[in-house]
Design a protein around this nucleic acid. Sequence first.
RNA 1: GCCGGUGUAGCAUAGUGGUUAUUGCAUCUGCCUUGUAAGCAGAGGGUCACGAGUUCGAAUCUCGUCACCGGCUCCA
Length: 645
Amino acid sequence: MIEIRLPDGKALDVPAGSTVLEVAERIGAGLARAALAGRIDGELVDLRTTIESNAAIEIVTSRNPEGGEVIRHSAEHVMADAVKRLHPNVQIDVGRTDHSEKFQYDFLVENPFTPADLEQIEKEMQKILAEKCPFTRRVVTRDEARALFSEMGEELKVSRLDDIPEDAEISVYEHGQFTDLCRGPHVQRTDQIGAFKLTETAGAYWRGDESNPMLQRIYGTAFANKKELKAHLQAVEEARQRDHRRVGQDLELFFIDPLSPGSPFYLPKGMILYNGLIDFIRSLYPAYGYDEVMTPQVFRTEIYKTSGHYQLFRDDMFLMQGDEDEELGLKPMNCPGHCVVFASRKRSYRELPLRLAEFSRLHRNERSGTLTGLSRVRSMAQDDAHVFCEPEHVDQELDRFFEMTDEVYRALEIEGFEVAVSTQPSEFVGDPADWKLAEQTLVGAVERAGFQHAIKPGDGAFYGPKVECDFRDVLGRAWTLSTLQIDVAMPERFGLRYIGRDGNPHRPAMLHRAILGSLERFIALYTEMKGADFPFWLAPEQAVVLPITEKHLDYARGVGKALTDAGLRARVDDRNEKLGFKIREAELCKIPLMLVVGDQERADGTVTPRWRHGASGKAGATPVPALVEALAQDVDNRRTPRISQ
RNA sequence: GCCGGUGUAGCAUAGUGGUUAUUGCAUCUGCCUUGUAAGCAGAGGGUCACGAGUUCGAAUCUCGUCACCGGCUCCA
């Protein structure tokens, strides 16, 4: 007998070798019916897993978040089963369920799936659910597995066997006639997948390699019941309303015209955001020791041959012909130019660290299929800077980067990001030993800053490893905003030297870094994070004056002028409409402050403030000069106004 | 770049081979004189993305091009 500890603190004695499901049955028949998976000492396991020694056991049902994952993982198998039933010649590759609400499965198929195919597959899946097929788990040897899948004609599956480590247990799961190589866990019966929906199809290269054939992927989502599915679909729909592409158009921030795919046209209101963010970052530079420079937009390609861009980044560059044999390139990054600035005269250790900042526009000829609103563009500006320092000062510069990032995130009130360190890619410049060292240096800095982080193998820039802060958009896609890279190549390629204390020339260390990332991507993500409720100091339109009737127009215009004279972005809604109508419009336009003026206000020289989302001022009517002064001061301090909000 | 989907007025949409292309919001005009999220009425606005083809007839079917959307690859 072994002792089982349950989450409520109770203990249970069961025979060694009991399954998790048997433990659930001991606790109660209802729990056993609802069980989807279990946990042994915290590790998610299948219900059929046997328990060999004393352990803490937890039964996972649809009430646990992991329950959903198990359901989706099982739905994956059911989908593959349905596809095989309808299209026996299709080969299955692998499925995947990440921590989102999605599941997917890849198929090698002659003709890509159509939306009509999806409907059919859904119907077939419904049948499989109705059949209430039990899932069974079987451990097999590598040879057995190979023979099994070869016999079924699943060649892709056979090749996937090689991905499984030598010492790992190989298990297959079966339900009905369908067998798949799988670690599990899975639900007990197909009907425990209460509700699902196939959402989309997509092409996906086999093993994620562009040189491999393209498989067809189907995405879906599944839940314990219809209610949860409906709630999820509704949440997705609501998130779409915050999509920066929609908001950017509705609020007239920017647009992108087919005449220049991937290159935004910023409208006046979008420019307020763009310039406001740059001004904010620029305001921090004196304290953090940055010097702003501006370097050319177009260079002779020699510079890119020196930097390595010409060899490794060429497909992403806009190249053009100059005079005769001269080839020119629009700059995709500021780093080569900053190396030229560094090298423009002799440098002493006394002027290091030299931190060169630049907000120039950059152009990258991104492949057409990758463009996405402002998140991925061909024309952008970064809040870019390159730090040249003595090698022994790198750690301290990295710490300073995290401090500045923290200050910016706090001021903009953003959070919820994931940190990752990306390592040496297959195509790179520099010495692999330097890469190793740089990677360790980055990891050390991330740990000092107190961040949990993932490693992204091979995802570094061609000139060095990077640390990145990724934020998710409304569709759950991760995008890098802040990033820092240690450059292991350019200082040497450009022959950069400074004179040290010892009077000898030394090679400086070089860091690339951006806090907002690119202004474009930042505006995209920030708009979605905030639902376009920008802080008062950044809001494209800060205040609107709402006269009750046309009688109050003159007074309203006076209030509006007092605001604009103080540098605030305000206007008067002089349309002949009811107050409720004007308030609704102002809310939809995301204007933070509405100032209502009628007979009473005009008589007293006041306004009645109403903050967005209906937060009316407790103070009621406020004298105009006091309000204007307080607002202007808060804008100067980039603070959210405290007056009556 | 690759796979799939979509493209109708400023925006959101109806219209799957047959009069003059639908509706809502927005715009303009008039009425109403308005107190915290949509007053009323009328008018204007369309190369149905672009190009070719099929057909007596194409927004609708076919092919090509472009752009966008979701993925893949790549990336701030």
